[in-house]
Nucleic acid binder design. Structure first.
Lengths: 237, 237
DNA sequence: TAGTGGTCTAGACCACCGT
DNA sequence: CGGTGGTCTAGACCACTAT
């Protein structure tokens, strides 16, 4: 993780977030980054490309690179981020309640979702996320035991992703997400402070490791009034 | 739009979509693309990077590039795509009803959303999208008249984006989206076949041109049972 | 060991923007 | 015109995977 372009990327992100490079201002040119960091132009361009991809800046031919307004879409559920990272970033008062934690043989539906052909087992983890005293989110996660052999209540209360990445040394690669709005199930009503709502926002996703292998399926059910998802998109040709 | 890397990108996309490069198969190596197209390695890498960004392939160091399973997330609302493009891609039976089309002075709220300081005018376009005979989506679009001076019923029924890009020669650059779930408004109930639902899925977005200027705000209100949004995300460091 | 993708360089030419 | 970003090249070295 110590490549030159990533460290330049990190520096620029910090400077944008702390205001050294303010919103709408022009970033230093590629050539000035070349001099300042004593690296080649291509390496600078790689950093800027990452910044552009992630919505930090916008480049205009002949003019320069400009810092985009982040405040308009600063909610980081877009992309791949864990609940714990989100809570920390947003400074939320939150509590996680472990409702279920068991290693089981998956039913045929789950076996299909996780591409399980043999008789592998699956960890089923149900967690309730309480924010400001209200039970708002029900997270239902399923992990292949082939990758995650052991899970404890402590790990689930802290951060499963942290455990997977730091302890097990697995690297998360990419995920597919699908957002829908569904009627409340009985389970939702029992486990969440659902009030009078009769629908929930549902985020279903499959998560893959960096070598492409599918290792998790999850379903995150949100009380509709507390749900927000943001996305940054570029037109591709 | 005729760069070498884009044309290689297009070729590979076609071959993936028509099955010449099947799901989960290994793509030819970078060096074989170099030979076949007689281009440098960096140019090949640029194409592959675009493919990876858009979720077509996944690269693994030491092994190769692999075609991802597209069928799992083939709904292209993610990213920037117009309603017309979507309908065509999915072969939907659809009809657009123009409910409102007027050039007006924006109220203070809209002026703020569109970053309007002077006394510029705004096109307000409300369209109802009917799919398989049911009114499912209410699209409320606001365009700065500074960029779009004239709009007609015909243009709105066809594709405003098509008009903007092809006739006006403006290039769409990027957008911020926010998805929430809100209670039905009276307007929703009147204009849509809302049935018994009392909530709608709402996608709010601002759209910028390639030079960074903000030119559109829009709010798309969907009957909740017909709403689906998909997203492909990579872990970035 | 051979093949693959990942990082980095130095240099070239082009297109676009402002003065 | 000088400054900016966009494309492309040829070559280098490295890290990882397979056999």
């Amino acid at each position: 993780m110590n490549s030159k372009y990533l460290s330049l990327y990190g520096d620029i992100v910090s400077k944008i977030e702390e205001g050294t490079f303010p919103t709408n201002s022009k970033l230093p040119s590629e050539s000035s980054f070349m001099e300042e960091y004593d690296i080649s132009r291509d390496t600078v361009r790689k950093s800027l490309q990452l910044l552009e991809q992630n919505g930090y800046i916008h480049k205009i031919k002949g003019k320069g690179s400009f810092v985009l307004d982040f405040s308009k879409f600063n909610f980081p559920v877009a992309g791949l981020i864990s609940y714990k990272e989100m809570v920390e970033k947003l400074n939320l008062h939150s509590k996680t309640i472990i409702h279920k934690l068991e290693l089981e043989t998956p039913d045929s539906n789950m076996a299909k979702l996780l591409d399980l052909t043999d008789d592998g087992k699956v960890w089923r983890v149900f967690r309730i996320r309480q924010i400001n005293g209200k039970k708002i989110i029900l997270d239902k996660d399923y992990f292949k035991s082939e990758f995650v052999s052991n899970l404890t209540k402590e790990i689930c209360e802290d951060s499963i992703y942290g455990y997977i990445e730091k302890e097990l040394g697995l690297q998360i690669g990419f995920s597919n997400k699908e957002i829908t709005v569904e009627p409340c199930s009985e389970e939702d009503k029992q486990l969440l402070d659902i009030e009078d709502f009769d629908m929930v926002a549902v985020v279903k996703s499959t998560v893959h490791l960096i070598d492409g292998s599918l290792f998790q399926y999850s379903e995150s059910r949100h009380r509709p009034d507390k749900f927000k998802f943001t996305d940054f998109a570029r037109r591709t040709w």
